[in-house]
Amino acid sequence: MPNDDIDVIAPNLNRRLSGVTATVISLVPLQARKVGITATGVALPDGLPFTPLWKLPFLKRRLRVWHARRNNEMLLGILLRSLGLMRLKLVFTSSSPRKRGGLTNWMTSKMDAIVATTPVNATVMPGTPVLIPHGVNTEVFAPAPSDIFGTGDQKLIGCFGRVRHMKGAHHFVDAMCELLPDHPDYTAIIMGRITPDNAAYAEELKQRIATADLTDRILFKDELPLTEMPRAYNALSLYVAPSLLEGFGLTPLEALSCAVPVVATDVGAFRDFVSQDCGEIVPKDDGGALAASIRTMLARDLPAMGTAGRTRVQAEFGLEREADALVALYRHLLGQT
């Protein structure tokens, strides 16, 4: 993309795969059809419109939008503008349901626009945020045959994300230890990164599984690249999101887009898109309720529920909606509307 055509800069300043990184990678190609946008930073795939960080101050001087999604990205945008290195309108999107501390509030006060992704998120954001929910690319996350986990004829129940306490993996393991003996045709998949600080937690989970004599039916799998995630969801019959805390929470939405029904805790935006025709919502941090809900779901018509879930995602939560709303915000800030 010629430098003169860049209207919007989308930084990604975290090397770890996260929901924020996935959002940038998914949104930028769609937005590039409608506005001059470039990504910058680290851990971004080839093929994405991209400008190295070091080149940004040397772009032709004109007004641009800097869309931050993390504190360090806010700070860099503030510095670039305050030091006179770039003319910027600053945007910050956050999905966190928690109130922010002093430094974050100070940085947020310097933003020209604030975007919240859920009504709950909006109530803890300073100022007057614009509500723009996340979406999912329903063409990429679409039903297709998959045996990516190599489990043959076994039906799969999946739980994806970093293996740590706040993701509720212990409740998922306990539920599977209770339910799988009664459902010999099912295997459970726990897929996600185990960081060194969570190694003891993961080992405890594996010991629980071994005690239940289910090591061959509750399987730990390494984190997959983003490009392989649709295949991961499509291998499942049921997806479980047992989180104790989420900002928005994309994984249940991605599962539903692949026509996989969902059991999820009542956190983040899960309640907004998991309805009774495509899944169940249970109280957070309630292992008994989670196990009971999964048991109920296994007795229902899971393929029909998955179809209903995909229909809802296509109608209400397509990524195109999010992209269009953000592009409209960018154009407003740039005086193009």
Rank of each mutant, 00 (worst) to 15 (best):
F149A: 11
L236N: 06
A210Q: 14
T251G: 00
D147K: 02
L205V: 13
Q31R: 12
T104Y: 13
M125N: 00
E178L: 05
A212F: 10
D324E: 12
G168E: 05
L250P: 02
L236S: 07
P11D: 10
A175K: 02
Q31S: 13
K206H: 09
G279S: 03
M176C: 12
S275R: 15
L179C: 07
A289E: 10
L238F: 13
R208E: 00
Y233V: 10
E139F: 07
R61Q: 09
M297I: 13
A289Q: 14
S275Y: 06
L180M: 05
A39I: 04
N137T: 11
T23G: 05
A39K: 07
C278I: 08
D153M: 12
A22G: 13
L245C: 01
A68D: 03
L205F: 10
N14L: 14
T251L: 12
R70K: 12
L76F: 02
M305L: 13
D197V: 10
I25F: 02
A299W: 01
E320V: 14
I37K: 06
D7Y: 01
L44V: 10
I281Y: 05
P143Y: 03
K110C: 09
S109C: 03
V124F: 00
G335D: 06
L180K: 07
L17E: 11
R61S: 06
S146G: 03
R208K: 15
A199I: 04
L253T: 08
H67R: 05
C159G: 12
H165D: 02
A68P: 04
H332E: 10
F92I: 07
R87Q: 10
